[in-house]
Simulated scan of single mutants.
Amino acid sequence: MTYREPLSQKAVGISIAESKDMEVLGLSEEHLRDAMAEVARHLLAMGARLVYGGDLRQRGFTELLFELVARHHRDADVGDGRLSVANYLAWPVHRTMQPEAIQIVAENHKGLAELHFLDDQGRDLSTEHLEVVSSLITDEDWSAGLTAMRHVLTGACHARILLGGRVTEFKGRMPGIAEEALCSITAKQPLFILGGFGGCARDIAEELGLVAPHQIQTAAWAERAQFSGMTQAVLNNGLNKSENETLARTVHIDEAVALILRGLLRCFSDPDEKSTALGPA
Rank of each mutant, 00 (worst) to 15 (best):
Q58D: 13
G26F: 03
E23R: 15
L112H: 09
M22W: 10
D80H: 07
M46W: 00
L56I: 13
D55N: 13
L43R: 00
D124F: 13
R82M: 05
T127Y: 01
R57P: 02
E5P: 03
M97D: 05
H94G: 11
A48R: 00
L25N: 05
A101G: 06
A40R: 10
I137Y: 02
L27V: 12
A17H: 09
A86F: 00
L27H: 11
L112I: 14
D80S: 07
E29Y: 15
L112F: 11
V12E: 02
E30G: 07
G122C: 09
V105F: 01
M46I: 00
K20W: 06
V69F: 08
M46T: 01
H129V: 00
S126H: 01
G81M: 09
N108Y: 02
H31K: 02
L68N: 02
Q58M: 13
E67C: 10
K110N: 14
Y88F: 15
D75I: 04
F117T: 04
F61M: 10
P99R: 02
Q103F: 00
L136F: 05
I137F: 04
E38L: 07
L56F: 08
D75M: 06
H31Q: 03
S135F: 14
Q58W: 12
S126I: 01
L50P: 15
E131F: 14
R41E: 10
V12T: 04
M46V: 00
G47H: 00
F66R: 05
F117C: 04
A86T: 06
P6D: 09
L44E: 01
L56P: 07
L56T: 12
L44C: 04
A17F: 06
G53L: 06
V132W: 00
V133L: 01
R33H: 05
K20D: 12
V78D: 10
Y52K: 09
G54T: 10
E18L: 12
A37E: 05
Q103V: 04
L125S: 15
H31N: 14
L50K: 13
D120P: 03
K110P: 11
G60F: 08
A37T: 11
V51A: 03
